[in-house]
Design a binder for these strands. Structure first.
Lengths: 244, 244
DNA sequence: CTGAAAGGACGGATTCCCACACCTTTTCGA
DNA sequence: TCGAAAAGGTGTGGGAATCCGTCCTTTCAG
């Protein structure tokens, strides 16, 4: 049952005994809010809920939340104004994205694999479930995206909304979270890569084909189109980040 | 862009502002080891690495690890023997599984959705990548499983190995972890459900068809067979756990 | 019989987190 | 006009989790 002795045993037990990353509440809060901001889920200029309400929603102490808000303030993603009618706002414009770290770059294939899995799985489930009105709403996003083909940050923001919207079609909060995390990991990789308008145009054509398949509950086509769509990104990354 | 006022706004921001679960190192360790044991990834009688080595691997202090080991000892999943040649061992036989809690039961649809997504996504990726020898190894599992059709715990253990094995076909540790977590969540639901041999036999037939599709790199068929396979469980659960 | 290898136990230092109270700034509304 | 309300900003003390190091106890191989 076990692997052959001497073989490079990469068994599933490696995962069991892998380091536990006990993320602190502070870290997770920075991560969550930071990702939502960088993805555009919290658009520039948006006002966050008041600290006293937000810490209740997040289930953490106010002092812990403030640590996170201060950290995001120092990195330029948030700014706060005092007094009645004040609050904490998403910066507008956002600070430039940090270039990906060496570790992130080293794991780009794993990130793409995870994305492939999550996105294809969700595309299939969405095709099975999608309700017409929700699909129509996503269709509008695709029209809006055509005006952003020469502005990658703007394009990417709507692109993220579209992909997260797919997850919402499944009506499952857990999957929405999974998709959000996946998109966050991808953004770290691709935000610094040049994307010619022709590439984005072609990607959005795939978006339309995908949505058409979902509308028809054609799960097989949805999976195929999604695979093709994601492969496009992988080819670009593979060309830039060669790996043995 | 926002939802209509007054509408039951279930936006993606609900996920952003959802409670952060700052899992402690102790809790995560209990969860990880406990799941691995319950899934049979750590077979009964297996000896764990020595505490001093294991805490290094897990990246936690020995006292924290001991808390987890003691907890799993009290629940009957582990027992320790002192002295040279001693160690910490997985109990044999395992204690009976706890019946699923009300919360787990309430979220069974979400768990099934996540499983559907992860398994289908992985099946597609595995079909794309699978190498012959690795597929052969999984084939052997399916032969072994035929002898367990009237012993559900034994069946389930090999079943888990098969599904985790699929994830390993992708060669991606993150996906193996995701699959392990998914199987753990499923086990909480199904371990207390009667599974007639005919059902298990039919499920294993689907296993074979799935593996055949993977061998041929037929991604569409793999996705279809996997969907059908998982749907079987969902039907059983839907009959037992009616939900509006 | 001795030493090595294993689990078992303790105590202090540190970090994280929480709860609560209070201050400062700003603006809305009576 | 002038509080009251709503927001961010600040501080303190305590509790819990974790880490680190040390020592004890048990058992067995050599």
């Amino acid at each position: 049952m076990g692997p052959a002795p001497g073989a490079e045993m990469t068994s599933s037990l490696d995962a069991v005994f892998a380091p536990v990353q006990s993320q602190t509440a502070f870290e997770e809060t920075v991560e969550r809010l930071g990702t939502a901001i960088k993805l555009g889920l919290l658009a520039p200029g948006t006002r966050l809920p008041a600290e006293r309400e937000l810490c209740a929603r997040l289930g953490i102490a106010r002092s812990t939340l403030r640590q996170a808000l201060v950290a995001l303030g120092q990195s330029g993603h948030l700014h706060a104004t005092r007094g009645r009618g004040g609050g904490t706002f998403v910066a507008d414009p956002l600070p430039p994205a940090q270039p990906p770290s060496a570790e992130v770059l080293a794991g780009w294939r794993d990130v793409c694999d995870s994305r492939m899995t999550v996105e294809v799985g969700i595309a299939v489930l969405a095709a099975e479930r999608a309700a017409e009105p929700a699909v129509d709403a996503l269709e509008e996003l695709l029209t809006a995206i055509d005006d952003t083909l020469d502005d990658f940050p703007a394009y990417r923001q709507i692109d993220v909304r579209f992909h997260v919207g797919l997850a919402e079609l499944t009506g499952n909060g857990h999957l929405v979270k999974l998709m959000t995390e996946t998109q966050g990991a991808m953004s770290n990789l691709i935000s610094h890569i040049a994307h010619p308008p022709e590439v984005l145009d072609s990607a959005n054509y795939q978006h339309r084909r995908l949505l058409a398949a979902i509308r028809l509950h054609d799960e097989a086509t949805a999976a195929r189109v999604m695979t093709e769509h994601l492969r496009g990104t992988e080819y670009i990354l593979a060309a830039l980040l060669p790996e043995p």
